[in-house]
Design a binder for these strands. Structure first.
Lengths: 192, 192
DNA sequence: ACCTGAACACCGTTCAAGT
DNA sequence: ACCTGAACACCGTTCAAGT
């Protein structure tokens, strides 16, 4: 059933890697709206080669995030196994905000990716939501939740904070996080 | 000292108005990144005419917002004179979020405009901040503030919520607002 | 005083032709 | 199987020439 996955041609593999490397550099410098033509040029390939490997911009971003996402989710599941659910949730939120602020424009892609099945980032967004949900459930079990909060609320907050970090001084995003966490948690339970 | 302000030529005034009308329509439909050439085309003028009236995109947005801003600030000062500071702050936050969600992309312009003196939106951002500060001061005097919060925190929150409204279902933004307001205010004081 | 539109320098995306 | 780059359709911005 599955298409026979042959090993790619050596030049194809090299182009793929060079494109990823240049895309990462360009996105870091100029955000996720950086010119695709510029990326191809810097990678030393024709623009058609870029499109051959990545049908659209999100596919490029998705490929770049793949490994980092796995590490992030691993971290989240690790936190879930810990003893202090409030601390786990706080750590998780900060880790994801850090992650989502890697490129200017990434927060917008993530925010759009949860409800858009077509998005190459959809699966990651769903997983972020699930881990957030489980962490919230743990906090609720510990009786440290002030009100009805869902993983979706946490997802929204993380993206909003990442976006804030993209365009305002860093402490603004931190203060927004603290404010919302204070609204979420029982007084006295708040950490970090 | 001031340059003698003559009344503009009739055709110039008409072009100015048509450009504003078409820009408003385009920004509503496609966000603040809508094509300026398209706006000029729809207004029936050459692209150079648009640049003659508005040196850049922000100037166009700023001109469109001018009247609406005045109404918004008037509303804010009116709230300031009211009897219930918590309700006033809540109303203010909702009004600004509504305002900032007029065009997709506007929240980003506002978030960047507070610290950028060059921005045509700078003055409005400063005023928003000031009104927020005064409302916070009133809430503090009433003893309803849970912690140290500034007008800048309110400004950040309003922009983050407006951005959320641009790219996620509306209730997500509302829940983020409620969460952060709950973190700001003493339990029991929260309204709306 | 204002308007026009060509000119320049860029883009995203596709696809026939090559190897 | 993959790569190339011309082709198409678009864009922001400036500025000499017109009225």
């Amino acid at each position: 059933m599955a298409a026979p996955r042959r090993r790619p041609r050596a030049d194809a593999r090299r182009n793929y890697e060079r494109l990823l490397a240049e895309a990462d550099a360009a996105f870091r410098e100029q955000g996720t709206d950086a010119s695709l033509e510029g990326i191809a040029r810097r990678a030393g390939v024709a623009i058609g080669t870029l499109y051959g490997h990545f049908p659209n911009r999100r596919a490029l971003v998705g490929a770049l995030l793949r490994e980092r996402n796995e590490a992030l989710f691993e971290h989240g599941r690790h936190l879930l196994a810990g003893a202090d659910p409030v601390r786990a949730l706080t750590d998780w939120v900060h880790a994801v905000v850090e992650h989502a602020a890697a490129y200017q424009g990434l927060a917008a892609l993530l925010a759009g990716g949860l409800d858009d099945q077509e998005s190459e980032l959809h699966a990651s967004c769903v997983t972020m939501n699930e881990i957030s949900d489980e962490l919230i459930a743990a906090v609720r079990s510990a009786g440290a939740l002030r009100q009805d909060v869902t993983g979706a609320d946490v997802f929204t907050l993380m993206n909003a904070a990442a976006w804030t970090r993209e365009r305002m001084p860093a402490e603004h995003a931190d203060r927004l996080l603290r404010l919302a966490m204070d609204g979420m948690l029982e007084p006295g339970a708040v950490s970090g």
